[in-house]
Every structure is written in C-alpha cells, then in structure tokens.
Amino acid sequence: MTPLSASNSALETTARRLPGDLAIWFFILAELLAFGVFFVVYAFTRANHVELFNAEQLTLDRTSGAINTVLLLTSSFFVVRAVQVAEAGFSRRAAPWLAAAFACGAGFVVVKIFEYAEKIGAGISLSSSTFYMFYLSLTFFHFMHVILGLVIIAAMWNGARTGRYGPDNMNGIETGAAYWHMVDLVWLILFPLIYVMR
C-alpha cells in the first residue's frame, strides 16, 4: 500500500458512513416501499369515496393519534441519546435511555389497544367499510412493526447493560436505532393522512 492510498483510507474512516448494518437499510427501503404503496392506495381510494372517508374519519380519536405521535418521537429521541452515549464510550449509561425509549413505545401500544378496543366495542371490523378496512389494516400493520421494534429495543437494552457497545462497536445499537426511526418515520405520514386530512 502506498502512503497516498494509506492516507486515503484514513480519510475514508472520517468521511461519509452509513450507520449500522447495510442489510437493515435494504430492509428499511423495502418497508418504506410497502408503507408508501399502502399510503398512496389509501389516498387514491379516498379520492373516490371522499364523503364516506370524511364522515368516518370523524369517529377516530385524533388526540390518541397525536399522543401516540408524541410517544414515538420521544422514544426516538431517547434512542438517539442512547446511541450518542454509547458512542462516547458509556455503554451502560445507554441502558436507561433505551429503557425510557421502550416505555414510550409500550405507551404507544397501550394507547393503540384502547383505540382498537373502543372501535371493536362499537362493532367496527375490517368489513365495516372501505375506510375502516384501511384504518384497521394500515394501523395494525404499523402496530406490528412497533411490537418488533420493542423486541429490538429490549435486545439493545440488554446489550447496553452488559457494556457491549462503544465507539469501536456501534453496529448493533445503530442497526436497531435505524429500524426504530423508520417505524417513527412512517407514522409521521400515517397520522395526518388517516386522522387529520379531509
């Protein structure tokens, strides 16, 4: 290796870098594609049933949707803090941040379960109408991603607690963090699209 190429590779280490595992980013792209298709199909179906969608949207609890947005955003912030602390070399200090992130994610699940219980109690199901079919299937598809995200955060918490992460071992925590932020990202479109836009 020539001195020039050695200095180039040294530069590369401080240049642009994709955080976490490359595989998770391909998985995230696939997920974004799937959610994107669902959102666009919802929007164009709505265009053909505007009155129905506007009327039934009024039965949704926007405040629950907003609370869940706040919970996901706050959870994402806590995950960022955990990653920053781990990167600074304090893996064990990342654990409480991840526990807080998990608590917010679990809060999302609880709010959503109450929302579903209320709808099911009112006799609403997938076959009630086109709007409710979309509302239930889209939010439940996202809900399953939140559940998987919580499992990943729990694994990250365990890793942080045992001192696994540090500036020389960020792959695991960055990979899990990227997935969790994706779950947040799609909700940022889902909330205005289904709960608010009319």
Binding site: S9, T13, V80, Q84, E87, M170
Partner: peptide, 13 residues
C-alpha cells in the same frame, strides 16, 4: 471503513 474505529460521530450532540 466500517471496521476501522473510531469513526467520526454521525449522531450529533
């Protein structure tokens, strides 16, 4: 480059 720590921080302050 991924296995050459420590890397520049990507995560801000």
């Amino acid at each position: 480059s991924l296995s050459s720590p420590p890397h520049a921080s990507s995560h801000g302050t």
